[in-house]
């Protein structure tokens, strides 16, 4: 049986060493504190045990307030240090670096389906280059799953109604286990896969091999197939928002709110168009909920993205 290692040791990604530093600090703190408590407890238990000749103390401890202030204050300071340390790592993990290589993942009971922007698709295996940040955009087509690579020290839940993202930058070529870590039904424990990290050259030749059409091109074909151009075009008889520069731009909604058109919003506008309607347009678009697959929606989004990204706050990266 082919068998890839969990590869838990070593700084496999740029972040895994950072997480491990906090881990070992917390291990040290746990051993030190629980060791101290247990030692004191047993030491007192033996030293003050009831025995012939043991003198009963009637001394009342003064200044309990001061003592208690110490054991509120010291833990508070230590806790705040850990809090900021953990929060700093969290920010880094949740903030996808600019220019990360996008990979799209659709999870379903019980497999992982990946699409590369160049068009290559794979199941339960994810080929990536080392040395560059990789952004995985996740969506589920059924229940909640969670994308977890222990060696990378990162995971993110995969939701059925909106996109979540995670990123990593692998330093060493190798194979790394992917687990589904959110219980998702019968074969949850077999919903495993592997990341295959290779050098950039190897990756590029892998992507070129058996070349497929890029996602954006497929998206364009889908838009023709589903007849989206009939309305979503300048000068169309039915006024509809146009796609150019839509991605990442501000959208004014009919309920007065202003949001950023991120992947989740574009997806929602395809499967549930009336939910967050753009101001000034009628709710006339039919839903494509059961006619279009999650993979196809991702291709449509890739195409819309290829039409130009609005300057301004990049959206999805900030709202994991």
């Amino acid at each position: 049986m082919h068998h890839e290692a969990i590869r838990i040791a070593g700084p496999v990604t740029t972040m895994s060493g950072v997480v491990d530093q906090l881990y070992w600090f917390l291990v040290f703190l746990t051993v030190l504190t629980s060791g101290l408590i247990i030692f004191l407890m047993l030491f007192f238990a033996v030293k003050y045990r009831r025995r012939p000749g043991h003198e009963v103390s009637h001394v009342v401890i003064e200044k309990t307030g001061l003592i208690e202030a110490i054991w509120i204050g010291v833990p508070l300071i230590v806790f705040l240090v850990i809090f900021f340390w953990g929060a700093k790592i969290y920010f880094q993990q949740m903030q996808v670096p600019a220019g990360a290589l996008p990979i799209y993942c659709v999870a379903k009971q019980w497999m992982w389906k990946f699409q590369h922007p160049e068009g290559k698709r794979e199941i339960n295996e994810l080929h990536i280059p080392i040395g560059v940040p990789i952004q995985v955009t996740l969506i589920s087509q059924d229940v909640i799953h969670s994308f977890f690579v222990p060696a990378f020290r990162t995971k993110m839940d995969v939701l059925p109604n909106r996109y979540t993202n995670l990123w990593f930058q692998v330093n060493q070529p190798g194979e790394y286990k992917i687990f589904c870590s959110e219980y998702c039904g019968l074969w949850h424990s077999l919903m495993q896969g592997k990341v295959i990290a290779m050098t950039l050259d190897e990756y590029e030749s892998w992507v070129d091999r058996g070349k497929k059409e890029p996602m954006a091109l497929k998206g364009e074909q889908l838009i023709a197939k589903y007849g989206c151009w009939q309305c979503h075009q300048r000068g169309s008889t039915i006024a509809s928002p146009i796609f150019d520069g839509l991605y990442g731009g501000k959208v004014h909604l009919s309920d007065g709110r202003t949001i950023v058109a991120d992947e989740t919003y574009i997806r929602e506008s395809i499967v549930d168009p009336g939910r967050r309607l753009v101001a000034g347009y009628a709710n006339v678009m039919p839903t494509f909920k059961d006619q279009i697959s999650e993979e196809e929606i991702l291709q449509l989004i890739a195409f819309i993205k290829s039409l130009g990204v609005s300057p301004g706050p990049a959206s999805s990266e900030k709202t994991p």
């Binding site: 997480v19 906090l22 881990y23 629980s34 850990i82 953990g86 969290y90 020290r153």
Partner: peptide, 20 residues
């Protein structure tokens, strides 16, 4: 011990790894 290991889970960056 149970309480102290709870700190791992309360610390955001650590929790990402050990959650679930």
């Amino acid at each position: 011990i149970g309480g102290l290991t709870g700190l791992f889970l309360a610390a955001l960056g650590m929790d990402i790894h050990v959650q679930d």
